[in-house]
Design a binder for these strands. Structure first.
Length: 355
DNA sequence: GGCATTTTTAGCATTACGTCA
DNA sequence: ATTGACGTAATGCTAAAAATG
């Protein structure tokens, strides 16, 4: 049994969304609730320096949390595989922003019929996020595409209603503001199923995030970059733990198998010893030994015959044959490793061929 | 280029919160 | 209503890598 778990070492673009054009009409996947924040204030921008230092980062977090509620309808993103696309709703596609080649640069210039690429600035919440990302991107990467990406998603119907998502966002905001009042209390926002599902899908592509990806993901999910970062850290830890459990289970089974095999071999050895004492001709068998070729240090098999027992062997041909068969079977069982091929040194081979 | 210092990041252990039976 | 178990978000610390002077 072998488990292959690729975690993807090198950062690379998420590819599962690259495939979306192929399944564009069938759809992708999960229903994503984006609680839209209110329009970004100038204050928001001043504090969106995630990464400058820990303190500043926490400040950003607080401010972003306050923004989490809006009267704007939340944007729902369907990510459930191949769910039907209601005609009444424009087709959407949630893309990772760093996949610029997939993005629709201008509304209406979509390469896919029926898909309306929406400029992120059309949504107040996203516009806010863009402003933050501009700051963040400017810090993390001067050539970052984060600031200029345009998210291509539209409102879609899903199992959850818009109101549900609004309630989610309101609850999150209410908790956040309560915490802010308390000051010292630890915030713990439970991510929605949709957010988790999207993060999960992202994790399948990348087990680690670069700053650009982190920012973009945070924007899309309306989370703080730190939350995305933490989620990935915890997710990696869970993966590792799970893998450890699997490995442990596997080793346990190996151990059990080997213990059983050991018992069986011990038993067989006892039987062979009993056979040896009861049948003295057992010793007349040719002995197979392993020797090391001195020149190339490879193992070779040699067979020697006990010469002084030839008569006895002749007299007991049948018995010896039986013993030989039993012994060879036993040897095969005793040493279930890849057999050492009889080795002959190249020089010896040429010599033998010549003679 | 080599070195010292600072910053960033991932990993890890742990804590604390939310949910559920 | 309470409680304990569990899952998981969040925190703090460390070491290594990367960036900077």
């Amino acid at each position: 049994m072998e488990l292959a778990l690729s975690l993807g070492d090198a950062p690379k673009p998420f590819t599962f969304l690259d495939r979306t054009p192929k399944v564009s009409n069938k759809d992708l996947g999960f229903c994503m609730g984006l609680g839209s924040g209110s329009g970004g204030s100038s204050d928001d921008k001043t504090v969106s320096r995630e990464g400058d230092d820990g303190i500043d980062r926490r400040e950003v977090i607080r401010d972003e949390g306050e923004r989490r509620v809006s009267s704007d309808p939340p944007v729902q993103l369907e990510l459930l595989p191949f769910s039907p696309v209601p005609r009444s709703h424009p087709p959407m596609q949630l893309r990772f922003p760093w996949l610029t080649d997939n993005l629709v640069s201008e509304p209406g210039s979509s390469d896919e019929p029926g898909r309306s690429g929406l400029n992120v600035n059309r949504f107040a919440a996203v516009a806010t996020a863009t402003e933050e990302a501009d700051d963040g991107a400017a810090l993390s990467s001067p050539n970052s595409t984060v600031s200029s990406f345009q998210m291509d998603f539209c409102v879609r119907n899903s199992g959850r209603t818009k109101r549900d998502l609004e309630i989610d966002a309101e609850r999150a905001c209410s908790r956040a503001s309560d915490d802010d009042e308390n000051g010292s209390t630890r915030k713990k926002l439970r991510l929605s199923k949709d957010q988790s599902a999207f993060l999960e899908e992202s994790f399948k592509e990348h087990s680690t995030l670069n700053p650009k990806q982190k920012l973009a993901l945070a924007k899309q999910l309306n989370l703080r970059p730190r939350q995305v970062e933490v989620w990935f850290q915890n997710r990696r830890a869970r993966t590792k733990l799970k893998q450890t459990e699997v490995d442990c289970e596997y080793l346990k089974r190996c151990c059990e198998t080997l213990t059983q095999e050991n018992r069986r071999l011990q038993k067989e050895l006892q039987e062979l010893r009993a056979l040896k004492t009861s049948q003295p001709f057992y010793m007349q068998l040719p002995a197979t030994t392993l020797t090391m070729c001195p020149s190339c240090e490879r193992v070779a098999t040699t067979t020697t015959t006990t010469t002084n027992s030839s008569n006895a062997a002749t007299n007991a041909t049948a018995t010896t044959a039986q013993n030989a068969a039993a012994l060879s079977l036993s040897k095969a069982r005793l040493y279930p490793f890849p057999q050492v091929q009889p080795h002959m040194h190249p020089q010896a081979q040429t010599h033998q061929a010549a003679s």
